[in-house]
Design a protein around this nucleic acid. Structure first.
Length: 270
DNA sequence: CCACGATCCTGCTAGC
DNA sequence: TGCTAGCAGGATCGTG
């Protein structure tokens, strides 16, 4: 599932490979798809002038004061092909570029979306209106401590709440809690100042490492060039239920927390 | 404010 | 072997 490091990987690849490129044609095989929002035909003739990321949301800015807002959710993929590709079963949008390359958006589960809107309206998107501050950007340790103090919810549930903190998903929540040796189910308010600091640093370290490895491709994630990330090779607990903890050897447990699969070491994290 | 459940969707898997 | 029911999950929305 694409989280901050995965979306950032795609963002930087778009910046490297697609700035200044003109979109000559757009096709959407399934016009009625709920994946599409706005009149996407408007992209035709426009150039890609910039690419931004807010949490897990990608914004591609275009030359005619329009922008594309793209959320990959669970199984969304944004991929660039060197030449015309056969349209896959789950491809919802195909952008043909002036140099013959193709940029495609596909999403098996159709949870993701592609929306076109005037650039000035980007900041009014509901997702951005309610999005919390972002680690590695504007979220400070002091901010983080304030968030923890305000709720009795399980710490892991708080980490996943995009309205509180931007960009963390299931993988990086589980991994950072393991790194900081904090049980996922303890209430946020119960963390000591030392634990808060450890967790804040762990979140930053885990996200940085994820970006460095090009994200995690435990199952469906692919980067802009169709390649896999490498961070799954470094998972300490995520998707490792029944396997030994890499720190103490105790078997990793899987529980459900807030309806989400949650992995942790019952020995290290208590 | 928060918890919980439903919603969207389809590939995969466990179970028969 | 082959079928099917149930599960997973990011974000939103409704209900309590």
């Amino acid at each position: 599932m694409p989280e901050l490091p995965e979306v950032e990987t795609i963002r930087s690849q778009i910046e490297k490979h697609l700035l200044g490129v003109q979109i000559t044609e757009v096709k959407f095989p399934d016009r009625s798809s709920k994946v599409l929002h706005g009149n996407l035909e408007q992209v035709e003739g426009q150039k890609i002038t910039g690419v931004r990321r807010f949490g897990k949301l990608l914004i591609i800015d275009l030359s005619d004061s329009y922008s594309l807002a793209i959320h990959l959710k669970m199984t969304g993929r944004l991929m660039l092909f060197q030449r015309t590709e056969e349209i896959g079963a789950h491809t919802h949008v195909v952008f043909t570029l002036a140099d013959g390359r193709q940029l495609t958006f596909s999403d098996m589960r159709r949870f993701g979306y592609v929306e076109i809107l005037p650039t000035v309206q980007v900041s009014s998107l509901r997702f951005l209106q309610t999005l919390g501050k972002e680690p590695l950007k504007d979220l400070t340790l002091a901010d983080f401590k304030v968030l923890l103090k305000k709720t009795r919810r399980p710490i892991k549930t708080l980490l996943l709440d995009q309205r509180k903190i931007a960009g963390i998903g299931n993988i990086y929540a589980c991994e950072s809690l393991w790194m900081a040796k904090i049980p996922p189910q303890v209430s946020a308010i119960s963390l000591s100042p030392e634990q808060a600091k450890k967790l804040f640093i762990a979140i930053e370290d885990v996200l940085k490492e994820g970006i460095k490895r090009g994200g995690a491709s435990d199952n469906t994630y692919r980067n802009l060039m169709g390649g896999k990330g490498k961070y799954q090779d470094f998972f300490k607990v995520y998707m490792r239920a029944g396997k030994p903890c890499r720190r103490c050897g105790t078997l990793v447990k899987r529980i459900t927390l807030g309806g989400r699969g949650t992995f942790f070491c019952p020995e290290c994290q208590k």
